[in-house]
């Protein structure tokens, strides 16, 4: 074995990462080569010095900062997912109104022309899903939400977040950074692009899958 070859294997020799055959070859070379033996000793010293470097403690604040960020990640992830789904959404936005309009025009025409009745007596016992809320407002669940500020988001992003898998309740604020009114229990969606909301969590509800 040449010195050049031995020198390249010394680190792996120290770390016990050589085959038995290579290990024996390096050992035999070191026994007869003072230069490579000096390299071996110096390398071993470096490894030992690094291994005995004083361990450090992670600052306590790290988890708080990570937690603050992971709490808002659902929005980012879902926003990305929704962006990737936008071509399909655009298609739905065009096709559904067209289909509804077509149906609304076709039904009276068919009824008039052929004397057919499509509907029985309307059943009014089941209220609609968003019963008392005006179309520009979203009712929130509990008036006693424990508000836990984790940041503000645009309404558009917030809705994308809600439609994902993660649990969020929302409180409206005037602008990013301003205090929320905890008593307010609806979101004004009159201008979805300009409204800001404070994200809140619900006591007893759990995050995760």
């Amino acid at each position: 074995m040449t010195c050049n070859m031995a020198e390249r294997l010394i680190s792996a020799y120290i770390d016990h990462e050589l085959s038995e055959e290579d290990r024996n070859r390096v050992r035999q070379h070191l026994a007869v080569c003072s230069s490579c033996m000096a390299t071996y000793t110096a390398t071993l010293e470096v490894k030992r010095a690094l291994s005995s470097m004083t361990p450090v403690q992670c600052p306590e604040c790290v988890w708080e900062n990570v937690e603050r960020q992971v709490r808002v990640i659902p929005f980012q992830r879902n926003a990305r997912q929704d962006r990737s789904a936008r071509p399909a959404w655009s298609f739905v936005k065009l096709v559904i109104p067209a289909a509804v309009a077509g149906t609304l025009i076709a039904i009276p025409l068919v009824q008039t022309l052929f004397g057919v009745s499509f509907f029985g007596t309307p059943d009014r016992s089941q209220p609609p899903a968003v019963s008392s809320a005006p179309s520009s407002q979203l009712e929130l669940a509990s008036p006693n939400i424990q508000v836990r500020t984790v940041g503000t988001s645009r309404a558009e992003d917030v809705l994308e977040g809600i439609l994902g898998d993660d649990v969020w309740l929302l409180q409206p604020v005037q602008s990013p950074g301003s205090a929320a009114r905890a008593s307010q229990s609806s979101l004004d969606l009159s201008d979805i692009h300009e409204s800001y909301f404070m994200q809140t969590s619900v006591p007893g509800w759990r995050y995760g899958r």
């Binding site: 937690e67 899903a129 968003v130 407002q137 979203l138 009712e139 007893g204």
Partner: peptide
Amino acid sequence: AGEWVIQLANEYAIARPAQPISKV
């Protein structure tokens, strides 16, 4: 579309049950 989004948002955000395991 806005009403549809509001309705879905309402159902998802308010009627969702507690999760048994906390990822966080």
